Amino acid sequence: MNQIDIESTDLNLLKVFEAIYDEGGAGRAALRLGVTQSAVSASLARLRSVYADPLFVRTGRGLAPSLRARELRPIIGEALDKCRQSLSLARPGAAGFAGRSLTLGLSDDFEIALGREAIAALAETAPGLRLIFRQTHSRLAADMLMAREVDLVIASGGLTAPALRRVTVGQGGYACLVDPASLAPGAQALSLDEFIRRPHVLVSSGGFIGAVDEVLHGHGLTRRVLAATTHFSALAFLLRGGDALATLPTHAARGLAAVAGLRLLPCPVAMPGYAIEMGWRADALRDEAVAVARRGLLVLLQGYDWSGAEAPVAGGRR
């Protein structure tokens, strides 16, 4: 097997690999890179020859990475990050980050509460930087950081790997959401009896048992879970027109109440709090784009009211 000489290999091919992997198609990769689709296809053919692997397989939804491509993604990503870091040292304080993207891993409860403000914060502190929200949760966040699938994460725990750094930005709590039409006139709270009586919609990555069930079990109580979903945003549709309720992080409950015409009410069961953290790879801050974005997002996160339950009257796994 002949050894490949780096001096005879066009390193721009690595940028093409990254773009195809992230965008899931040659056409979208071409738009990202500002080149023609035929140029991307030609580069992919050369990449396949270099790595002796198809790398990407066509599916009904675009190009899916092969096992070898999945192995290569963190290695190539790290190499490109090092190049970007070296260039940022050559241009300290350069204005704007045009053409750069930053991937923020978070679950949709955080995206509901903070997404718009995060976009605005980075538009001010890192002009030109494109923000990509990528879904994750506390059991996946660390692995996604280590695999360089995300640059920064906001999560409720799970960021304990030695190669990661994290900072606690707040303490989360819980609230309930219901359709206001299902409440008695003037009702401002749910009794424990009504909380137990109503059917519940659970938000969980899998199964029908959540933190509420564990707390109720400690009091010798149970609830009836009518349905379960993996996305908090679905509650805007699942709760309307019925008497079901959902218990979810207060920050997401406030956001959904404000836009979906749902009523936010205090949870009648004392729920445990949880730490909200931002995490990143230990070496990531050598990239100026990540460092600047982290500073801007920390200001936003540390100034956010995580536990407040105030919301318009109508407007974790829970």
Rank of each mutant, 00 (worst) to 15 (best):
R91N: 12
V153L: 06
E71H: 13
G96R: 05
K82Q: 11
A94Q: 14
G105R: 02
A95C: 05
A118W: 00
A126T: 04
A118I: 01
R91S: 11
F97K: 01
A79G: 09
L87D: 13
P185C: 12
P74T: 06
L87W: 13
S138V: 02
Y174M: 10
A118N: 02
H137E: 07
A113M: 08
Q85K: 07
R148G: 09
V167G: 05
G158N: 07
E117D: 15
S182C: 13
A142S: 15
D108P: 04
E71L: 14
I75N: 02
P185N: 12
R166W: 04
E124K: 15
I132M: 11
R70G: 08
E124P: 03
S138N: 08
S138A: 14
A181L: 12
M146L: 15
I119Y: 11
L87P: 00
D81M: 06
L104K: 04
A142I: 03
R165M: 10
R134V: 02
E124F: 12
R166V: 04
A126N: 03
G157V: 06
G77E: 05
L87N: 12
A161T: 03
P127Y: 11
P162V: 13
E111H: 03
C83A: 14
G77P: 05
E71M: 13
L152W: 06
S107N: 14
E149G: 11
E149R: 14
S156A: 15
A123Q: 15
L114E: 03
I119N: 05
G158L: 07
S101A: 11
G170W: 03
I76C: 09
A95F: 06
L140R: 11
I112V: 07
G170Q: 07
G170H: 06
K82N: 04
K82G: 01
A175W: 00
G105W: 01
L80W: 05
P74S: 07
L183Q: 11
H137R: 07
I76F: 11
R73H: 15
G186N: 08
R100L: 11
A90W: 06
V169M: 10
V153G: 03
P92T: 04
I119D: 07
V150K: 02
G173Y: 04
A175Q: 03
E71P: 00
A163V: 12
A113E: 02
I112D: 01
E124R: 15
L177Q: 04
G173F: 05
Q171F: 10
A181V: 13
I154A: 05
R165Q: 13
M144Q: 14
I154S: 01
E124C: 12
S88M: 04
L177S: 08
M146P: 00
A181M: 10
A113N: 08
S88V: 01
R116C: 00
T136F: 02
I132V: 15
F110W: 07
I76M: 10
D81A: 14
L177C: 11
R100G: 02
R139F: 09
A126S: 12
P180S: 12
L140P: 00
I76V: 15
A141C: 09
S101K: 09
G157Y: 06
Y174Q: 07
L89G: 06
T168V: 15
E117T: 08
A141N: 02
L80Q: 04
A120S: 14
A155M: 04
V150I: 14
L122W: 05
A142L: 03
L131W: 06
A181P: 05
M146C: 12
L87H: 11
R73P: 01
L72C: 09
F133A: 06
S107V: 02
V178R: 03
